[in-house]
Amino acid sequence: MNRRHFIQLATLTSAGFALSGTCAFADWKVRRPVNIILPYKAGGGTDSYARAVASAGDGLFPVPFVVVNKPGSSGMVGATEAARGRPDGTTVLLTSAGSFLLTSMLRDTDVTPLESFRIVAQIGKLTTSLMVPYDSPYQSLDDLVADIKARPGQVRWAHTGNGGFHNVAGQGFLDSNDLDAVGVPFKGGSATRAAVIGEQVSFGMIGIQQAAGFEEQLRPLALNSDTRDTFMTDVPTFAEAGYDAVDVSSPIIVFAPKDTPDDVVAALEAALKEITSSQAFIDAMAERGNAPVYLPGAEAEANLRAMKENAGPIISALK
């Protein structure tokens, strides 16, 4: 009797859970695991988002989320594979959408974020910032700008590779303030950070979360965003420091192949909303200095289109 009672109770509670808020994805009958294609190596910044989604989303569907790393060609190998994937919701792409968009613009790739995919939802956002070595003579953005004006074309700055969102944001800042400095690409975030710390360059454009733990080696002077960072609250935005900048960031977006049906996309969107608001996901992100930024698919898509407009002139100048 006790056992029967327990089972009844369990059925009731789980039904209750299903009714409260989870109904949007409860009727999606998925049989195979959901493969999250991640177009970078395991262990990188975007990878940690995918792993956090997979562990926080465990149990939402009868099948698990599986992270599949497909690195290569600045993220285009994985994106191409995901675009060709079965459009039934069991293949999705989780990527740094700013880099994906800008790479597709710079290289005219066959697969593009807006034409080859449907946007499910945004789950996070990477923001770039202008950093100088700790012992740098520049105490503020004003000092740096004055020096670049005094020595046009002689100040060197580091970024993570041509056409990346750090590069476009840095070039956007220089262009909109009529400044002339030479950009030097390094391979990825940690190499760029090391070049700035080692004073190989005068400043660098680096993701704000990369400064965590390097407070005695680096000083962020300005953040390329309209609001301040959740963790590094004392870094002013470019606007607060009194300079124009181009609004380029890299939202972390989950994409589904173009022909994925509406109800499946809606179910995934609802699941991602639930995952990003869960404590497990928030904690996993906070460990790396990131905060979840959930946006529904339609809003994320509008932002991405706006970024495409903003970056257009800078990209054509880089080509």
Partner: peptide
């Protein structure tokens, strides 16, 4: 510094990060 000196090092950075340890 978080700069891997070899391919094995690059993978190890990932392990640190996955366990929530900031290399630096």
């Amino acid at each position: 510094l978080g700069i891997p000196g070899s391919t094995i090092g690059a993978i190890l950075v990932g392990v640190f990060l996955i366990h929530g340890i900031q290399v630096g």
